[in-house]
Structure formats: C-alpha cells, structure tokens
C-alpha cells in the first residue's frame, strides 16, 4: 500500500496542475482572443456605457415596457448574483396563487385585454434570469406598450420583429423575443 501513496499524491498534484490550472488558463486565453464579447458576458453598451447583458434578463413592471418572464430570485427579481427557479411543484397551491397574481397584474396594467395570457408570461423561469419571452407573450403586450407610449402598433411591431430570433438551424429550441433589447430599442426611439 505504501508504494501506492506516492503515485496517489503526486498524480493528484500533476493532474491538478494540468486540469485545474493549465486547462482553464488555455481556455480563457483562446476564448478571450476568439470570442471576446461572449467570453465577457455579452454586454450591451450604449454611448460607451454598459447598460446590461443581452443574456441576462432585467425586471420591468411599467406599462411602457415589455415585461419579461416572472423571476423569483431574492431579494429582488432578476438578481444576477443569485440565480434560482421557484421549485414549486405542479400541484402546489402557492404556484396557482402566484400565477393568478401575475394574471391580475397584467390585466390591471392593460384593462380591456381579456385574451388568455401566454403561459410563459405568468410562470417563473428556471434561472430567474431568462432574458426572453415567447413571440406570443410579446404580441399579448404590444397594444399596451403602444398605448402607454402613444406609438403606432406598427412601429412597436417592427421593433418586436427586430428583437425576435427564430429556432436555431430552423429546428432547435424555440422562437423568442429579447426583452431588454426590445425595451432599449423603444427608449432609443422615444427618449424620455
């Protein structure tokens, strides 16, 4: 057994140097050269200032903005430093209550719109940081945003289309609308 202790210790040190130091350093070096924007968080800059990440959702609650997926991170929604989902089970009454409250909030912000709410707009995302909503969820909110901003529906529709990406390779995942990019485009169109 004593003959096996030296290899166990030395191999661990050597392998740590290779897989724990060399490998992440080489990966970081290559990533920073090949894909600098992605490797550093896909940050969005406006007038030379960072205003967010196209991959991390922000919270919106005003009528003039498109709202994103509900987020249950604490102490505030869309807390980038503490990702989490609700982990509420399908039959948990708390889930049904939360969904009801979200429907009420959407209805209150948009009186008269009685269409059924797209499910992704009233259910919490897995990460609590989902940057996107379904095209259906964008359609549902379009008139509200247009009205709140005094814009043409067509103008808003154009920006929604620009913020929409289809399935990758025509097949993978789902079509989706990037909420932060859409709202930034709205603000750029109509500075407040």
């Amino acid at each position: 057994m004593s003959k096996l202790i030296r290899p166990a210790l030395v191999m661990l040190v050597l392998m740590t140097a290779i897989t724990g130091v060399l490998y992440p350093l080489v990966t970081t070096g290559l990533a920073q050269v090949l894909f600098p924007s992605q490797a550093n968080g896909s940050l969005i800059t406006k007038d030379g200032k960072t205003v967010g990440s196209s991959l991390i959702g922000q919270s919106f609650t005003e009528s003039r903005y498109f709202w994103g997926r509900p987020s249950v991170t604490t102490p505030m929604a869309n807390n980038g430093a503490s990702s989490t989902g609700s982990n509420q089970g399908p039959t948990n009454p708390a889930l049904t209550d939360a969904v009801k409250q979200r429907i009420d909030a959407l209805r209150a912000a948009d009186p008269g719109n009685n269409a059924p709410v797209p499910v992704d707009l009233v259910t919490a995302s897995g990460s609590g940081l989902d940057p996107e909503i379904s095209p259906a969820a964008a359609q549902y909110q379009m008139m509200r945003v247009a009205k709140a901003r005094g814009l043409d529906a067509a103008q808003v529709q154009k920006l929604v289309t620009e913020a929409t990406s289809g399935r990758q390779l025509g097949m993978l995942g789902e079509s989706r609308v990037n909420v932060l990019q859409l709202n930034l485009a709205l603000d750029a169109l109509q500075p407040h």
Partner: peptide
C-alpha cells in the same frame, strides 16, 4: 408563437 405546455421552471429559449 409559443412552446406552450408546463413552462414553470423552464427557459423560453428551450
């Protein structure tokens, strides 16, 4: 326009 289904705990892109 949407994936539908049980979206609680799921991400829009998936």
């Amino acid at each position: 326009l949407q994936a539908g289904g049980n979206m609680e705990g799921k991400e829009t892109r998936f």
